[in-house]
Each structure stands twice: as structure tokens, then as C-alpha cells.
Nucleic acid binder design. Sequence first.
DNA 1: CGTCTTCTTGATCGCATTCAACGTGTGTGG
DNA 2: CCACACACGTTGAATGCGATCAAGAAGACG
Lengths: 233, 233
Amino acid sequence: MSAFPNGDTEQIGRTAQDRIKPEISAFANVGLIRRLRPGDTLIAEGETSRFCYKIDSGVVKEYNTLEDGQRQISDFFGSGDIVGFDNSVEQLHGVEAVSDCVIRCAPKDTLYRVAMSSADASRLIVEFLLERLNRADRRLVMITRKTASERVSAFLLRVWKEQGCAPRTFLAMSRQDIADHLALTIETVCRSLTSLRRRGVIAMPSARYFTVCDEERLLQCAGEEKHPLSLET
Amino acid sequence: MSAFPNGDTEQIGRTAQDRIKPEISAFANVGLIRRLRPGDTLIAEGETSRFCYKIDSGVVKEYNTLEDGQRQISDFFGSGDIVGFDNSVEQLHGVEAVSDCVIRCAPKDTLYRVAMSSADASRLIVEFLLERLNRADRRLVMITRKTASERVSAFLLRVWKEQGCAPRTFLAMSRQDIADHLALTIETVCRSLTSLRRRGVIAMPSARYFTVCDEERLLQCAGEEKHPLSLET
DNA sequence: CGTCTTCTTGATCGCATTCAACGTGTGTGG
DNA sequence: CCACACACGTTGAATGCGATCAAGAAGACG
């Protein structure tokens, strides 16, 4: 959930995704630990794997590669998030480290056993997946119905909030990653950032750090007035 | 799955979605039956409901309404499909009849009980949801990375195949619905259809019926050479 | 037969892409 | 330490796709 390099920070309230985290960490505590460097592959597309992964620290990107080599990054994940739960056998997404990562591995079968153990557990797992579905839908709406700068603004807000609205926010991902996530070109992402900077809505002391100078206007730029469908909560 | 007005036709092979259907119908057999006419609301957005629904016949659309009144149709569903399983309490999608429909109602709680009953059942339900997630991802890629006419072509292929590649295929949904689904305007959908017609790839004896004249070229127009990520299987 | 909805076509406009060039930062070897 | 290379980021100018605005055609229905 959090595209944030550090450890456990206070998260903004999110429904099922947060409630299930403690439940799932219960089984993820046992398991191999993997350490990744930026660019390392955690899961190859189409790979056959019995495992899924819980991110202890760092940020990963979940992507699909298209026939022409383009990448669609479906989401970024951070501390506490589960990835690689695509399918019982075949992985449909690739997952790659964006920053240095520490990741725990757990067999997928365990999830099914957990689901059977109690009504609450099965409900939690179903709601975990439903939450992902809702995120996918919100992402679709955001990408299809928002302009380039609205998408960039919304993305900045998301990262900013995930890092606890800190005055200095770190962008773990490259411009290309942001572009691949928001379905834009790298140039358009740059231009949108420049525009926000010029208008004093944000400041960027360096390419990978930014400051939210005017939250109210950034919200306006993101084109959302606390609407339930927005990607940010 | 099938945007098809008739009863049970032979479906193109699809992984989890198809395998789970018999399992879920087992509990959907008991329950109220509702009959809907085109435009009737099955589920209102944000509604609180204990029920989910299995479509016996007809086509429904699942949508979200945006702040400005636009609609994003996330998917169309037909015979055998389950809808309204959004969340344990609150519905995040609206669902509305596109054609005349017969629909069975079943309490959501039943699904959780089914999930607990056996390892296979819980696996089936998880895979059912994972299949929806995969569909959502393929849709995102299709909408963000394909041109207008590629989207329209891909959509026609989907409907065509769901109706068993019949020589005369029925379009249950309006141009506006197609536009709302493909994130286009109604005019662009029309123009794409006209272009396909002019080039002899399809024929349209009337607005709601079409014939695939040249499957090979329609596939090319859809911009996909049997790639695993394509929305059509 | 007229009205209403849905569909189609045309003309123009604007946003994001594309192509191209330039800047910036970082690491490596001389 | 500087020089160079190379990846990443930024900016500019031109192009094109789909949206918008506007009007007309074709069904559906009383």
C-alpha cells in the first residue's frame, strides 16, 4: 500500500487492506527472507510459483509488459503489503524492486488454510481481494477520466499521505515509473511537475524529493473534492 | 462474463471464472428471483445490501458514476455471472439491466460459509476474485494503451466470441454504454464502427446487429496477435 | 403522422504524444 | 582532482487522435 521506503509509519485509514494486514503477517512471519536492490526482479511475468510475498521495507512495482515492450505499472507496494498472490500457480504480473527491499516469502497454500480456519479469516481474505478490486476500479477511473496534471497531482497526494504528510516527501520511483503507472509519457509527467512547481503548489529541491506547499490547491489540481471514488483516502 | 442475451451457450475457455460457476450456482439455486427490464436498477451505488446476484438470462452493466455525472462501465455481465459481491456491506458499483433479465438473489454470508466448508471451495472463491482482478488489469491495459478503433474492434470480438462466433451477432448495449465502457465518446464509437464497416471488416444490417466479415483483419484492427494480455481469450 | 430517442456524420479544437535537443547528476578511470 | 560517459530529467516545437460542438438521419412508439 505505502510507496514509502521507511519502516512502519502511521497509515491513513483504509478499510479492508489495513484490517487484514495483522492477520496475514501472522502466517508471513515464518518464511524465507529476500533482500532486493533497485531493479531486481522479485517475480517474473508468467512465472510459476508456490509463494507470495510480504514487504517488510522498500517499494516494489507490479507491472505487465505489453507486446511492444511498453510497461503498465498496475501499482506500487510498500511496507506491510502482500504481492504475488495473483493466481494459485501462474503469476500474471511481474514484480520488481524500486528501492532496496526486505521481503518475506510464504507459500500461497497457507492462505487457503487460513481462509478455512474461521469465518472471520475467510471474510478477511475475501475483503482483501475486494479491496484490490476496488483499487483497480478507482485507478481505471482516475486514468481514463482525469487529465495528465490531475493524475500527477493525485499521485503526489497519494505518496505524500502515505509518508504521513511529511514536509519533505521522497519519490522512490523514477519519472518513467510514474509515467508507466499513470499511462502518460515521461515528458508529460515532467511538464505537469514543472507546472505545479511554477505555480507554487509544490516545491522540488531535487528530482526525487518534493514538498506540498499548498494542499488545498493540490487537491483542486487533482480534480477531487473528497469524492468517494478518488484513489486517495 | 457473457454479454449475451440468450441462455447457456458454449463459452470460450476461461480459467477460474468458468470453473467456479457450477460451484457458486449451488448456493444461488435457492433464493428470490427478480425480473428486470432494460434500465432497471438491480443495485444502486452505495447501497447497503446483504445480497449478491446470479444472472440467469439477460445482460447487465456494472458501473460507477463520477462527480460530474459521467459513467464508467467497468464491465458487462451475462448468463451465469455473479454480480454485487463488491463488499460485505456497501456496494461500490451500481448494476443496471441492459436487456430483459432474470436474476437470482443469494445472501453474501453464504459465500463465506462456502469458503470455510473445504479447501477447494475457498480456493475457488479466491480464484474467482483473482480472475476479476486479472480482468480489471487487462481492461486497464486495453483502455490505456489501445487506440479508439482498437478498443472498439476488441470489444466486437469479445461480444462475437461470447455469442459463439455466430454469423449474426446482437449488441445488447447502446452506443453510449459501449462508449462508457471503453472510455470513449459516443461519436468516436460510431466513427470507429463506420470505419470498420467501410473497410469491409464487419457488416451492420442494423445498429444493434453486426457480422464479422474478416476475422483476421478484425484481430489486426484490435491490435492483438493472440497475446496473453488481451481481453479476449 | 409527429415526437422522442438513438445513431451518424461533419468541422473544429485542445491535450498529450512525438521527435529533438539540452541540462543535471553520479560514478569510473585516468 | 578532473574528464568523460551514461543514465535520468527537463524543455521546446510540431503533429495527431479523440473530444467537443453542431446538425442531420434513422428507428421506436404512441
